[in-house]
C-alpha cells in the first residue's frame, strides 16, 4: 500500500479528463430511461412541475403566504434538492451498476462517478424549465447575483463526484448502506428547509439549520435562482465540504481502489 494518494489522483485526473466518456455514459443513461416515450426526459420535469405547483398553491394557503413569493422559493428548492438527492442515491449504485465494465476492463473507475454527477446536472437543467415558467409568473428578479448559480452548480458537481465515489465504494462492499442512505434522505427532505424557510422554524430551532450540510448545498443553487447571493456561511460550509470530502476520498480511494473489483 505505497503511494496511495498518487494512485487516487492519477485515477481522478484520468477519469475527469475523459469527459467524452462520462458525458456519453451519463447522456445515454438518461436516453435509456425514456426510450420510446414521446416527451423523453421531460416526464420527470412534468411530474415535478405538477408536484411543485399543486403543493405550492396549497401550502401557500395553509401558511398564509403570498403564492408569488412561495412558489419560486419552493420550486428552486425542490429542483436543487432533486439534484443533490439524486447524486447521493444514484452515487450508491455508481460502481455496482458498472460491475460489467469494472470486471472486464482497466479504466479509471472515477469515470462512473463523474457520470452520475453529470447525469443529475443534466436532469436539473431540464427541470429549470419549470422554474423559468414560475419565475415569469411571479416576476422573480434577475440580478447580478443570479450569475452565482454557475459556481453553485460547479460546486455541486465537484462534490457530487467525490460523494458518488465514496458511496459507490461503500455500497459495493456493504450492500446495506444504500438502504440506510435512502431512508436518511427521505427524512432529510422534510427537515431541510425546502418547504419552509429557516426563520419559520423560530428562534429556538433556526440555528440547527446552520449545521445541516445538505441545506447549504441546496442554498448555493437556490439563492442565486431567486436573485439573491447565498449566505457567506453556505459558501464556507460547501467549500469546506469540498476540501474535506476530497481529502477523505483521495485517501479512501487510494487505499481501496484495488479491492473494488473484488467486492462486486
Amino acid at each position: 500500500m505505497m503511494p496511495q494518494y498518487e494512485v487516487a489522483l492519477a485515477d481522478f485526473a484520468e477519469g475527469i479528463s475523459a469527459w467524452r466518456m462520462w458525458g456519453r455514459l451519463g447522456w445515454q443513461e438518461i436516453k435509456r430511461r425514456y426510450r420510446r416515450t414521446v416527451i423523453g426526459p421531460f416526464w420527470t420535469t412534468l411530474s415535478l412541475g405538477v408536484f411543485i405547483v399543486v403543493l405550492g398553491i396549497v401550502w401557500a394557503q395553509l401558511w398564509r403566504q403570498d403564492p408569488k413569493a412561495y412558489l419560486p422559493f419552493l420550486c428552486a428548492g425542490m429542483l436543487a434538492w432533486t439534484m443533490v438527492a439524486g447524486i447521493i442515491t444514484e452515487g450508491c449504485m455508481a460502481f455496482v451498476a458498472g460491475e460489467g465494465l469494472i470486471k472486464q476492463l482497466r479504466f479509471p473507475h472515477s469515470i462512473l462517478s463523474c457520470s452520475v454527477a453529470w447525469r443529475n446536472l443534466v436532469v436539473f437543467l431540464h427541470n429549470l424549465v419549470i422554474f423559468a415558467a414560475i419565475a415569469v409568473y411571479a416576476g422573480v428578479p434577475v440580478t447580478p447575483a443570479s450569475l452565482l448559480v454557475v459556481p453553485g452548480l460547479v460546486l455541486v458537481w465537484v462534490n457530487g463526484v467525490w460523494v458518488a465515489t465514496v458511496l459507490g465504494m461503500a455500497c459495493a462492499r456493504f450492500r446495506d448502506v444504500q438502504q440506510v442512505i435512502t431512508s436518511v434522505l427521505q427524512i432529510s427532505m422534510f427537515v431541510t428547509p425546502i418547504f419552509f424557510t429557516p426563520d419559520q422554524l423560530g428562534p429556538r430551532f433556526e440555528g440547527f439549520v446552520d449545521f445541516n450540510v445538505l441545506f447549504h448545498y441546496v442554498d448555493i443553487v437556490r439563492s442565486p435562482l431567486l436573485g439573491r447571493a447565498p449566505a457567506t456561511w453556505s459558501w464556507t460550509v460547501t467549500i469546506a465540504g469540498t476540501i474535506l470530502g476530497w481529502g477523505f476520498t483521495l485517501w479512501a480511494y487510494g487505499r481501496y481502489r484495488g479491492r473494488l473489483p473484488y467486492w462486486l
Partner: peptide
C-alpha cells in the same frame, strides 16, 4: 473477454460501434 463492453440494446449499430470502441 466481452467483445462489446457498454453495448446498449436500444442504441443503433453505429452508436454501439462508438461506445464499445471507446471502451
Amino acid at each position: 473477454f466481452n467483445t462489446s463492453p457498454g453495448l446498449d440494446m436500444d442504441d443503433t449499430g453505429y452508436e454501439n460501434i462508438w461506445t464499445c470502441g471507446l471502451f
